[in-house]
Amino acid sequence: DHWEIRVGDITIHLKDVDEEIIRWVEEALRNGDDLEEIKRWVEEVLR
């Protein structure tokens, strides 16, 4: 699977990601969370 999350001008590409993570990231972006923080979290989860 390949996911693209778009929020404003930001697009995040994710592969082999659980839908729950996608929802979490979308929510975090909508809440204005720091992008670097989100990326770190996702990388942590995917490890």
Rank of each mutant, 00 (worst) to 15 (best):
I5G: 01
V25R: 00
H13A: 09
E19A: 11
G32L: 08
E43N: 04
W24Y: 13
E36W: 04
I38Y: 01
I5M: 05
L35D: 04
D33H: 10
E36P: 01
V45E: 14
V17T: 09
A28W: 06
L14H: 02
D18I: 13
H2V: 14
G8L: 09
G32D: 07
I12Q: 03
E20W: 15
E43Q: 08
R6L: 09
N31R: 15
H2A: 05
E19P: 14
W41S: 02
R40W: 04
V42K: 00
R30S: 04
V17R: 06
A28N: 04
W3G: 05
D34Y: 12
I10P: 00
T11F: 09
E19Q: 10
L46F: 07
E37T: 10
E44S: 03
R30V: 09
E27P: 00
E27G: 07
E26L: 14
L14F: 13
I21T: 08
A28P: 00
E26Y: 11
V17F: 08
E37R: 08
V42N: 00
D1L: 14
E4C: 12
E36N: 08
E44C: 07
I10S: 06
D9G: 06
D34K: 08
V25K: 00
K39T: 08
I22S: 03
L46P: 00
R6S: 10
R23Q: 09
E27R: 10
E27W: 12
I12R: 00
E20F: 09
K39E: 06
E44T: 03
E27K: 14
R40I: 06
R40F: 03
W24E: 04
V25Q: 00
G32R: 08
D9E: 11
W24S: 05
W41H: 11
R30I: 08
R6M: 13
N31S: 06
I5R: 00
D18M: 14
I21D: 01
D33W: 15
R30A: 15
H13L: 14
D1M: 13
R30T: 07
R23I: 06
E26Q: 11
I38D: 00
W3K: 03
W3L: 06
E44K: 03
E19W: 15
V17S: 05
D34V: 15
V25I: 10
W41K: 08
V42Y: 06
G32H: 10
E19K: 13
H2M: 13
I22Y: 11
I12G: 03
E4Y: 08
R23Y: 03
R30M: 11
R47N: 15
W41E: 02
K39N: 07
V42M: 05
D34I: 15
E36M: 07
V45S: 06
L29G: 01
R40G: 03
D33R: 14
E27D: 12
L14Q: 02
D34R: 06
L35K: 04
G8P: 02
L29N: 01
W3Q: 04
I5N: 02
A28C: 01
I21V: 10
E43Y: 06
R23F: 07
D1P: 13
L14S: 04
I38N: 00
I22P: 02
D9R: 03
W41C: 15
E26K: 14
R6T: 14
A28F: 05
A28Y: 04
H2G: 10
E20A: 10
R6W: 12
D33M: 15
E44W: 03
I22N: 01
G32P: 14
H13N: 10
L29D: 00
A28D: 00
V7G: 04
E37K: 12
K15L: 04
V17D: 02
I38Q: 00
I12D: 01
D16F: 09
H2R: 11
T11R: 05
V17P: 06
E20L: 09
T11G: 03
V45M: 15
E26N: 12
K39R: 14
W3C: 04
E37M: 10
E19I: 13
R6C: 03
W41Q: 02
G32A: 08
D16A: 09
I5C: 03
D9P: 06
R23P: 00
G8Q: 05
W41G: 01
D18N: 14
E19F: 12
W41I: 11
D33I: 15
D1K: 11
L35G: 03
L46Y: 03
H13G: 09
E4P: 06
R47Y: 03
I22A: 08
R47Q: 15
E37F: 06
E26W: 15
I5Q: 02
A28M: 12
G8K: 02
I22R: 12
R30Q: 07
I38L: 07
K39H: 11
R30N: 07
E19Y: 12
G8A: 08
E27N: 14
I12P: 01
D34C: 15
V25P: 00
E27C: 02
R47E: 14
D33F: 10
V45T: 07
E36H: 05
N31F: 07
W41F: 11
I5H: 03
T11M: 10
V7Y: 11
N31Q: 09
V42E: 00
E37H: 08
D16I: 05
K15C: 08
R40Y: 03
R47P: 06
I22H: 05
V7D: 05
I22T: 04
V7Q: 05
E44Q: 04
D33E: 13
L35T: 04
R23N: 07
I38R: 00
L29Q: 01
R6Q: 10
V42C: 01
K15A: 10
A28Q: 08
W3T: 07
D16G: 14
A28R: 13
V45G: 03
V25N: 00
I38A: 01
I38W: 03
R23T: 05
D18L: 14
I21W: 07
A28I: 13
W3F: 09
R6G: 06
L29S: 01
I5L: 11
E44M: 03
V45R: 03
L14M: 09
E36Y: 05
E27Y: 08
I10E: 05
K39S: 06
E44L: 04
V42G: 00
I5Y: 03
I12Y: 15
L35R: 04
K39A: 07
D33L: 15
V45F: 15
G32C: 15
D1V: 12
W3A: 03
K15D: 09
I21H: 03
G32W: 11
E37Y: 14
L46K: 01
D9K: 05
L29M: 09
G32Y: 08
I38E: 00
L46H: 01
E43M: 09
V17I: 10
K39I: 14
I10A: 06
N31G: 05
D33A: 05
V25A: 04
D34E: 08
E43R: 02
H13F: 12
E4W: 09
E26F: 12
